[in-house]
């Protein structure tokens, strides 16, 4: 809780920034794409918005996760404390962000005459997969950042690249070759696709699609947690 409070303290619009950032990205991209294309796919706006929302939660979540240990250097060096707790706090802050972003998401729908159908009840499940993925990566990234500071720059670049290799501004059916190959192993891409299906295409993803995304999230979570446990004794001295 403190994390969130501190992040927005001293800003005039406070929590509203969590909503403004993705909304502005969306408006900008929507204007650009409707200008360069004579006609767009049905419900392109909602397609774009869904992708941006998931991507934004992921990028904010993992970027916050990276510094969840290093940003609390003082606390770690002055009291004995469970270190596993720090990435979790950072992800809890991300969960609050999710509420705000989902609010914006539904708030913008009427402007495009979009009414979701019942399949949207799966949205919490998709977001849960996203949260597990973010937590797993936060474990890996936070502990790496203690030992190798470069990871923050590197992740910034990867996050930037992720925007283009994830189906946000393009449709999976339209791509082939390298981009499709990358998409197949991109866990965020799979989560975005699940969201597209239940929101925009109004269908229920088949079980294998769920399992694929679940395996990615849980797999990364366990690997992340193991790495964290392995290195945790040395965190405080190296920080």
């Amino acid at each position: 809780m403190m994390n969130i409070k501190i992040r927005f303290k001293g800003t005039y619009l406070g929590f509203a920034w969590a909503a403004i950032e993705p909304a502005l990205t969306f408006i900008l991209l929507y204007i650009v794409f409707t200008s360069i294309r004579s006609r767009t796919e049905e419900n392109f706006a909602i397609y774009l918005l869904t992708g941006i929302m998931i991507y934004h939660i992921f990028s904010r979540g993992t970027l916050g996760g990276i510094t969840s240990l290093t940003g609390n250097r003082g606390i770690l060096q002055s009291v004995k404390i469970n270190k596993e707790f720090f990435p979790v706090v950072s992800v809890a802050a991300t969960c609050l962000l999710i509420f705000i972003e989902v609010g914006v998401f539904f708030g913008l729908m009427p402007f495009f005459n979009f009414i979701p159908n019942w399949t949207i009840v799966f949205l919490p499940l998709v977001l849960a997969l996203l949260v597990i993925l973010i937590l797993g990566l936060s474990y890996i990234l936070s502990v790496l950042h203690v030992f190798v500071k470069d990871i923050q720059m590197l992740w910034g670049i990867l996050i930037h690249a992720l925007f283009f290799i994830t189906p946000i501004i393009w449709y999976v059916k339209d791509v082939s070759g390298i981009l499709l190959a990358i998409h197949k192993i991109n866990p965020v891409g799979h989560i975005v696709e699940l969201a597209h299906k239940i929101v925009v295409f109004r269908e229920v993803p088949v079980l294998s699609e769920w399992l694929y995304a679940l395996a990615f999230s849980i797999g990364i979570f366990f690997v992340g947690f193991m790495i964290f446990i392995k290195f945790q004794e040395r965190i405080v001295e190296e920080i």
């Binding site: 403190m2 409070k5 501190i6 303290k9 001293g10 250097r73 003082g74 606390i75 060096q77 002055s78 009291v79 004995k80 404390i81």
Partner: peptide, 25 residues
């Protein structure tokens, strides 16, 4: 433990908030 001056404190919070935060920690 009282190790290092004021580490574990958050500069953007006031004294009361910091006491609560630190104590819970």
């Amino acid at each position: 433990p009282i190790l290092q001056i004021g580490t574990g404190f958050h500069l953007e919070l006031n004294a009361k908030e910091n006491i609560m935060n630190y104590g819970l920690l």
